[in-house]
Design a protein around this nucleic acid. Structure first.
Lengths: 359, 359
DNA sequence: TTGTACGCGTTATCAA
DNA sequence: TTGATAACGCGTACAA
């Protein structure tokens, strides 16, 4: 139904031909290659895995035969004999298709180089089975690694299970236990500061801040960045404008209501997550305020959802694809024992429009 | 960073504990199960695969041990010894994250029942390597089947290769060779008729129609459905209002321009694809027409993209998740040799808003 | 630098 | 209805 090429008149005939020609010829195996090349099976294996101690001439010879026979090693056999499966899994339950897609593309970009495939299964974060399902996944197949995205990054039962099995995993934007595994994240302090500077640049002086749950490290970092930007601009931090939420819509709505009920309400609200920003947006609309004319609302787009669903928000977004590529890279090339953290540049997304939340 | 649970104080400690307890105990194998249950390996295998000729008592006994040992068969070993991999692959290169996501969710819903996993790798439709990549994919692993989405559904080189290897595959909305494989699609005739009725219901009597490329069966079906609805309403088909495009943006824009340049232009335009509808929309805006006040534009949402990117369009949409589930079902439970076609109910999505295309 | 022999954990074959 | 045994195709340890 899409662009381009002219559909062929007699594809079926072509297919039949193909079938008769080369069909029933079985896949080539290492054995075939070794016989054709006149070397041992092990030598072929060495060439395939880029091991040392292979003569240059031998290597050439083997590679030529591999090419000629169009040989591809059987993943099943490699997995059974060895200890890896050339597959990574993405554990991702995010409400945003955009996020999921970008994640997958990013992972794939990196995995392609190593001939590694990606198992992608949507997961239900609410499911009490989640831990069990993931257990089944890793028991069934010695995955090369897992990539976790929020909120599964912070499910202790899942993390415990992975650690218990000795599975390698990388977390994207984890909120807890930063040293537990390699991870990828943005610089929350810098991002929050930039967002604050943006609001200050718009002329705002009284900016309400809704912090996230205190138990998350990110919450403090974002608050600190915000405060630093205010300090730069010579604006005193007004404790009355500082509220603490719990990262969800409800708390965002409630805290925004508290802020807007002040005798001297803020002209802008900076929420520490997209859900809370959406809550603030809803509150503003409920109170008959126009956004951003009467009050500016900004926030962190933790799920990459805000920019799609709530176009009115100015957000700090995490470049999802880049995070994904880095996560895959940590999995495939990083030191297994490390807990390296990669910091990704954030993106400030400025929206002009005024719109009610669709969600 | 998301909802719910309180982060644990000492996760790391928990992990260490777990590690000491049950970590180094290796996975249970069939051998273990057979020993514990006091039966042969083969009998365990029979139970696992629901084969006949297993005594009820034996089955119970084995299942109990399987449960107790938390045994999970090794996919690698099954694949190596048997002829399937318990994995299906989704060959999907669609510009719409929404489409990809829904596709994956639908496939997963069905595969879960059979304990089958989904390999999802974004593909580049433009790549000359595509055929080779897919060849490598199926050579490396005896997949249980592939699910193809447009436009790969109609790439003869890819189809030939799959048929040559005897791979099972199901196509979603294929445009050519309907008998080549099982497939899932909507009833184009009925969908086009319903869309036409909608436009007629809005009061339109002069409706321009931009058909798709004549070489696609769907093009004719959509035109026929459109014509049938006109006939129902007693409206004569005006040949001057019938144009033929090539399913792309350019042709949609050009044909819409031709239609709107008529001495007596149509009050509505029905495009046979989302890209062409978008082209028509662009043309309307370029000519200073308001949509849908001056001219209504409607079309088929082939890629499930139109509704997101071009909110002004009224579209016929294919329920992607449902198609995906059916495709997976055909793969997993259908007759291997059949070319069964499943018809999925379409959805008429009516938009009221007026907006310029963002794309 | 290369080769031999064994084992990985299942399914498949055939006999009991 | 069950069980013994041979593949399956590759990695690994060790020998040459």
């Amino acid at each position: 139904m899409r662009r381009g090429w002219t559909p062929p008149a007699k594809l079926c005939n072509q297919l039949t031909q193909h079938k008769n020609n080369g069909a029933n010829r079985l896949r080539a195996t290492i054995k075939d290659v070794s016989r054709e090349a006149g070397v041992s099976i092990k030598t072929v294996s060495r060439v395939l895995n880029n091991e040392r101690y292979v003569g240059a001439a031998t290597r050439e010879k083997v590679l030529a035969v591999v090419e000629r026979l169009n040989f591809r090693p059987s993943m099943a056999a490699r997995t059974l004999a060895g200890s890896r499966s050339y597959q990574v899994a993405l554990i991702c339950d995010n409400p945003s298709p955009y996020y999921v897609y970008e994640m997958q593309v990013g992972i794939r970009e990196r995995c392609e180089r190593d001939g590694v495939r990606m198992l992608a299964q949507p997961y239900d974060r609410e499911s009490p089975q989640l831990e069990r399902d993931i257990g089944a996944l890793i028991d069934t197949m010695p995955l090369d690694g897992l990539i976790l995205t929020p909120p599964v990054t912070d499910y202790p039962a899942v993390l415990a299970r992975l650690a218990e099995r000795g599975m390698r995993f990388v977390r994207v934007s984890p909120s807890t236990e930063p040293m537990l595994s390699p991870s990828v994240h943005i610089d929350n302090h810098a991002a929050a500061a930039e967002m604050a500077r943006h609001l200050i640049g718009l002329g705002h002086r009284r900016i309400g801040f809704i912090a996230g749950h205190p138990s998350y490290a990110a919450s403090g970092q974002r608050l600190a960045g915000f405060a630093a930007a205010l300090a730069e601009a010579g604006i005193a931090v007004d404790a009355a404008l500082l509220r603490t939420g719990t990262y969800d819509f409800q708390s965002g709505a409630a805290e925004a209501d508290a802020l807007l009920s002040l005798a001297e309400p803020p002209t802008a609200i900076f929420a520490s997550s997209d859900d809370m920003a959406a809550g603030a947006l809803a509150t503003a609309h409920r109170r008959g305020l126009r956004v951003p004319d009467d009050v500016s609302i900004a926030g962190f787009d933790d799920t990459a959802l805000a920019s799609v669903v709530w176009p009115a928000l100015t957000t700090i977004r995490q470049p999802v694809r880049e995070m994904a590529s880095n996560a895959a890279d940590l999995l495939l090339s990083g030191d297994p024992a490390s807990s390296e953290r990669r910091t990704i540049a954030h993106m400030l997304v400025v929206r002009q429009s005024t719109a009610a939340p669709r969600g």
